[in-house]
């Protein structure tokens, strides 16, 4: 991967990262690890510390204790070297409302280090970034005339304008309609395939499930889970059966049905017993017995089930507070 550092290609790494605001601990002892090429989704209810964590990574909020490394360099000490390679969207996008989107991007581009030397390529990069987020034809309208979704796209364009190696996006789907969400997903996957590591925070599990390769779950400031999505969602060895003859199926599979929900059964097939312990074997057995099967397949937990199983019930109260 592109210059992610020599030490095991860690793009973001924190050790025992903690932030206290007075007596409130917003983030406690988080060991985050985002590897080069990851599409990392940080999940957690509102108020679980996602935004504080993201702001610490970017040097906006200073940690109370612990260490942060981004692209192989310590933050916030090396912000000047690290941040030019990072594109960021932090909570809502922001722009100067009386200026056009194009002018806003140009000003943002000119503000950072190398702002003068980047002048020659600026117009092209601004056009390119606007094109990437689907704002190519937006022209000279001032930002105050933009819709919420357009502002979000403009914010994303701002994150892309310096062609970063790492994207840090806090709730990037906010304000986007279903079309916008799909465009965003395709854009991020495309960038990721071109070598950009994507780190995003969200409270929308479906969004993360469809986009990310790796997830972390924050609950009341603690990182309670961090793993590859594929590992988390590995088949559980159970079979989901959907059958209109659910009563007869329960009788037939005596003791093997773990859960019943209307016509849906969660079955743990017993190996042997004249059948293999998989969906195909179970299907053959049900059909042989004259039962109708409308759907059958190996059971996988949804991300939602996984997240809810590791977050405490108390977090719901925090979650609903915003």
């Amino acid at each position: 991967m592109t210059g992610a550092g020599e030490s095991g290609a860690g793009v973001i790494r924190t050790r025992a990262l903690t932030k206290r605001y007075g007596s409130v601990t917003a983030v406690r002892s988080v060991d985050l690890e985002v590897r080069a090429g990851d599409r990392y989704g940080l999940l957690g209810p509102n108020g679980s510390g996602k935004t504080t964590l993201v702001r610490m990574l970017l040097g906006l909020v200073y940690a109370t204790s612990g260490e942060i490394e981004v692209l192989g360099r310590r933050m916030p000490r090396h912000a000047r070297e690290v941040l030019p390679q990072v594109g960021a969207l932090i909570e809502e996008p922001a722009a100067y409302p009386h200026l056009s989107g194009r002018t806003n991007l140009a000003l943002l581009d000119a503000a950072g280090p190398g702002g003068l030397s980047a002048r020659r390529t600026r117009k092209r990069r601004v056009d390119e970034a606007l094109e990437q987020v689907g704002l190519g034809g937006v022209g000279r309208r001032p930002v105050k005339a933009y819709s919420l979704g357009m502002r979000q796209r403009l914010g994303l364009a701002g994150a892309l304008i310096r062609r970063p190696k790492l994207l840090v996006l806090d709730e990037p789907g906010n304000g986007l309609d279903p079309h916008g969400i799909r465009d965003l997903r395709e854009l991020l996957i495309g960038l990721n395939e071109a070598g950009v590591t994507v780190f995003l925070s969200s409270h929308l599990m479906a969004e993360v499930e469809q986009l990310c390769t790796r997830v972390g779950v924050l609950d009341a400031g603690r990182l309670v889970l961090q793993d590859d999505l594929a590992a988390l969602r590995a088949p559980t060895g159970r079979v989901m059966v959907d059958t209109p003859d659910a009563d007869r199926a329960v009788a037939l599979l005596d003791g093997q049905v773990e859960r019943r929900d209307g016509d849906q059964l969660l079955v743990r097939p017993v190996v042997g017993d004249g059948a293999a312990g998989d969906a195909a074997g179970l299907n053959a057995r049900l059909v042989e017995a004259g039962l109708r099967v409308s759907a059958i397949g190996p059971h996988q937990r949804t991300l939602e089930e996984i997240v809810l199983s590791v977050t405490g019930t108390g977090s719901d109260h925090v979650g609903e507070s915003s």
């Binding site: 040097g59 906006l60 000047r80 941040l83 100067y96 950072g112």
Partner: peptide
């Protein structure tokens, strides 16, 4: 207040 401060600082502007 406009939110642009954080984007300037992560640009980064010292």
């Amino acid at each position: 207040a406009g939110g642009t401060l954080r984007y300037l600082l992560v640009r980064p502007v010292g």
